[in-house]
């Protein structure tokens, strides 16, 4: 996993609520057996016509909006557990998704992919949507060590929450596997002591 420290970037706004992982990456694109290349099919049915031509009204096809931060409506990533959704966003160049809340499985998958799910209040989210609509070139600064989101044009800095362990993992590019494997002895002891196996 790549390390994440600080990001200054423009924003791609997607003001839709309950964006499900079938929209992020439709099931018919899940037939690959590797992790790479899902970015080209990110939001495929919103982004392309059936003949493969880009749909002009979809935000990813609008050159006004550029950046590595996706700004999305509440309950982003609901539905299927497919980690391919996080891979597709990451593969397409996104490093941060900002929303007012995330579906549980997506949040975990994003963190395991190196994609930061950054949760803000509904009020901040709506404010950001308005700001980006007014000034599409607005830049945001995400600083993970201090857990802050800065909006330079507002002269404002907003804190966000993140599990301390997960934060360390993102900053250092670690994942959970090394830690879990290091716990082998404790796991073996647990297996010997448990009684409810029939």
């Amino acid at each position: 996993m790549e390390k994440f420290q600080t990001l200054r970037s423009g924003v791609v706004p997607l003001p839709i609520e309950n964006v499900d992982t079938d929209q992020i990456i439709p099931a018919r694109f899940l037939k690959a057996t590797t992790r790479e290349g899902f970015g080209q099919n990110l939001f495929a049915d919103w982004r392309y016509q059936p003949d493969g031509q880009p749909k002009a009204d979809f935000v990813l096809n609008n050159p006004r909006y550029q950046g590595q931060i996706l700004l999305a409506g509440k309950n982003f990533g609901c539905g299927s557990s497919r980690e391919h959704a996080a891979w597709a966003l990451y593969d397409a160049g996104f490093k941060v998704v900002i929303s007012s809340y995330f579906a549980d499985i997506f949040r975990g998958n994003a963190l395991n992919t190196g994609l930061l799910p950054l949760q803000v209040s509904d009020e901040v989210l709506q404010g950001l949507f308005r700001q980006i609509e007014l000034e599409p070139e607005t830049q945001l600064v995400v600083d993970l060590p201090s857990q802050t989101l800065s909006v330079p044009v507002w002269d404002a800095t907003i804190g966000f929450e993140l599990d301390a362990y997960k934060k360390e993992c993102l900053i250092n590019g670690y994942d959970d596997i090394d830690y879990l494997v290091s716990q082998r002895d404790a796991i073996k002891t647990y297996e010997q002591l448990r009684k409810w196996v029939f």
């Binding site: 557990s81 996080a86 975990g108 395991n112 879990l180 297996e191």
Partner: peptide, 19 residues
């Protein structure tokens, strides 16, 4: 349900690191 990274974790350790 879990994502593929967690599938790997369970394969490697029979455990997950979760809250």
């Amino acid at each position: 349900g879990i994502g593929t990274s967690q599938v790997t974790q369970v394969m490697a350790s029979q455990c997950l690191l979760i809250s």
